Simulated scan of single mutants.
Amino acid sequence: MISRSLVAVATVALLATTACSRTGEIDSSGGITAVRTVCPAVAVPAATGDITLFDPSGARTSDAIDVNAIITNVRSTCNDAADPIATTVTFDVLARRTRTDSAREVVLPYFTVVTQGGSVIVAKRVNRVAIRFAAGQSRAQTSATATSYVVRSAATLPADVRAQITRQRKPGQEDAALDPLADPTVRSAVARATFETLVGFQLTAEQLQYNATR
């Protein structure tokens, strides 16, 4: 599991301007209500959701494939009632091997990364998951987990930015049709409060290149 020092937060964005409004509804001012959770978004970065092992290791042809594994069925559980807010990510690893003559265990590394603003890595941890094949078995499956923690102070937008985003704008006002996020100050504040929890296989440079170019 990822350590408690990790910070993983999602933003608080546009809030309801009337008590009876629900997400996606048009409120009394003519705006659309949108409520975003404080739980971090969870995803698998491109080209890191599968891993291929070769035998011999330097080969890259299909007849040299030894083991192939993929990450699938990614799901998350977020406890947003606490501080820090804990998000547990669970995923399945499906693996297939070429030679099935004997029982075998394959250990694969995977990472958990927390990013801020979609690009800045806040924290990273590498764990390992073991896939066990029985003799004569070509396919195997297991599950793995990772946990990140949300610090509410990092998720909270400054009061002036929050007020600017949620302020009611009446038709005819000069800024009525302007997106608050068009303001660089607001956009920057929202980015700083936007975090993601990402999981994927910890690939070598060669493995990453193989996934990206095959």
Rank of each mutant, 00 (worst) to 15 (best):
S102T: 15
R97C: 01
V114W: 00
N127R: 08
V126H: 03
A140L: 00
R97D: 04
L178I: 11
S188N: 11
A205F: 09
A144D: 06
Q116C: 10
T100M: 04
N73V: 06
P45G: 02
F195S: 11
G118F: 04
A16Q: 10
Q164K: 15
T17K: 14
S62P: 06
R187G: 08
A19H: 08
L203M: 04
P171V: 11
V7G: 05
F54Q: 00
R139I: 09
L94H: 09
T17D: 13
T88A: 07
C20S: 15
G200N: 04
R214V: 11
A146N: 06
G58V: 05
S143Y: 05
T112H: 03
R192F: 08
T72I: 02
T11Y: 12
E25T: 13
P40T: 01
S57N: 10
V114E: 07
A82C: 03
C39N: 08
P56T: 02
P158R: 04
R125P: 01
L208K: 09
T52G: 01
P184E: 04
A103D: 07
N127A: 12
P109T: 01
D55I: 04
E25F: 06
A34K: 09
P184Q: 05
T37E: 11
T147A: 07
V150E: 01
S57Y: 10
A43N: 13
T98I: 04
T72M: 01
L181C: 07
S29L: 07
